[in-house]
Design a binder for these strands. Structure first.
Lengths: 135, 135
DNA sequence: TTGAGTGCAAAACGTTTGCATATAC
DNA sequence: GTATATGCAAACGTTTTGCACTCAA
C-alpha cells in the first residue's frame, strides 16, 4: 500500500485536462492536450497518473474501446454509448434507479466481491450513420 | 461487404476451442489451445476470425479487460464479473428482466442508434481475496 | 534531506496488415 | 479455375518499465 502521496503539478494538469476536454479522454488525448502548453510532460507520467487516479477513485475507468482505455471525471454512476465507427463516447441518460439498483439485484455469490459496475452500449452515432447512407 | 463465406477448418477449430475452454477466452488463449494439436495455425487467422465472428453474431465480444479482448460463445444476453487481480471472468446471474429491460428504458436519443449492450462488474474474486488476507 | 514522482527511451503487449500461397467452392 | 482465407512476419498503437534525476514534503 502507498502511504505518502505527493501533489505534483503534472497530476493537477492531468485532472484539469480531462475536465476541460470533457470527452471521456484516453491517456493519449490528455497528453496531447497538456503538451500544447507544457511540452516537457512525458507520456509515461500521464499513463502512470491516470491509472493510479482511477485506482484511488479520483477518476472513473469507463472501459477500453477501439484500442484505448477511457476515463471519466464525472464520478457519478452512469452509462455510456460508444460509436463503433468514430469512437465518440456519449453519456447515456437511462433510468437512474434502474442502473443504480442493478448492482443490488444480482444474485449474491461467494465467488466474488463486486466493487464497480460498468454499463456501455455500442452502435453508430448520428453523424457516422449519415455518412454511411451517402456512400 | 463480404458476399461469399467459406467454412474453413480453422474457423471450426476456433469455435470448438472457445466452447471447450469455456473461460470467456481472448484470442491468445484460443491460439495456444489450438496450437497444441494443430501447431500450423497462425495467430493472424485466430484474430481475424474471432473479430469477424463477433461482427457476424456467431460470438459475443464482451469487452476488453486487463489488456485483451474477450469473447463468449454464450450468445444469450448476460452480465459478467471480472476479477481485477487474476483476470478471471465469471457469468453473473442478475435479474434477467432487469438486464433485458435496461436497453428499453434508456432515454431515446437522436444522437445514436444502439445495437449492443455490455454490462460488466469489477472486483476481486474469492481466490484472490483469500491470497491478499494472508499477505 | 530523502524517497516519491518525473522524463526519457526502450521494450512489451495485443492486435492489424501486406503479401505470396493454399484451398473451399 | 477463381477469389477467399491462410501462414508468416513485419508493423502498428497503446501501455509498461528501468533508470538517473528532480522536487514536494
Amino acid at each position: 500500500m502507498r502511504l505518502i502521496k505527493r501533489n505534483t503539478i503534472q497530476k493537477k494538469w492531468i485532472l484539469e485536462a480531462i475536465k476541460e476536454l470533457n470527452t471521456h479522454a484516453a491517456a493519449e488525448e490528455v497528453y496531447d492536450f497538456i503538451a500544447k502548453s507544457n511540452p516537457t510532460i512525458s507520456k509515461g507520467t500521464v499513463y502512470r497518473n491516470m491509472s493510479q487516479m482511477a485506482k484511488d477513485g479520483e477518476l472513473l475507468n469507463i472501459g477500453s474501446f477501439l484500442g484505448a482505455t477511457h476515463y471519466d471525471h464525472n464520478l457519478h454512476e452512469h452509462a455510456h454509448f460508444v460509436c463503433n465507427v468514430c469512437g465518440m463516447i456519449f453519456d447515456v441518460e437511462c433510468d437512474e434507479n434502474l442502473l443504480g439498483s442493478l448492482k443490488d439485484t444480482i444474485v449474491v455469490s461467494d465467488e466474488y466481491k463486486i466493487s464497480s459496475c460498468n454499463v456501455s452500449f455500442g452502435g453508430v452515432c448520428a453523424k457516422c450513420g449519415l455518412k454511411r447512407e451517402t456512400i
